[in-house]
Design a protein around this nucleic acid. Structure first.
Length: 108
DNA sequence: ACTATGACTCCCA
DNA sequence: GTGGGAGCCATAG
């Protein structure tokens, strides 16, 4: 999965993000690693930023520190959503220890 | 085709 | 333990 990123990178990322179950969160680096890019967390961030798919829970993707990055307004919205899903959110920080998820599957 | 930018991360002081 | 700087991927201009 190293050559599929020819414009389809976003789609791949969305597919992966969709695998995150409700009540769990993942990180940019986890997705990047899963895709094989390793240090391409930033690119994943771009995919999230451009996420226009309604079925992509981009709010379940946070930073490796558990911080919900992005514009404060958007971040706050996502934080609220996460808290509604049962995730403990504190000042735009989520508890990765209890809600981290990285068991993705490439085939759907 | 090249440079600049960004919802990120890791390493070193 | 904290803070600052460099690195990496993909996209947009």
């Amino acid at each position: 999965l190293r050559k599929n990123n020819a414009g389809n990178f976003f789609e791949i990322v969305y597919k992966v993000v969709r695998q995150v179950p409700k009540g769990k969160v993942t990180t940019y680096s986890a997705i990047a690693k899963y895709l094989g890019v390793g240090r391409g967390a930033r690119a994943v961030g771009w995919a999230m930023r451009d996420c226009r798919h309604s079925d992509v829970p981009c709010h379940r993707v946070v930073r490796s520190d558990g911080f919900i990055s992005g514009d404060p307004e958007s971040a706050n919205e996502r934080a609220l959503k996460l808290s509604k899903e049962g995730i403990e959110v504190k000042d735009n920080f989520v508890d990765l220890a209890g809600s981290f998820y990285d068991n993705f599957r490439l085939k759907t």
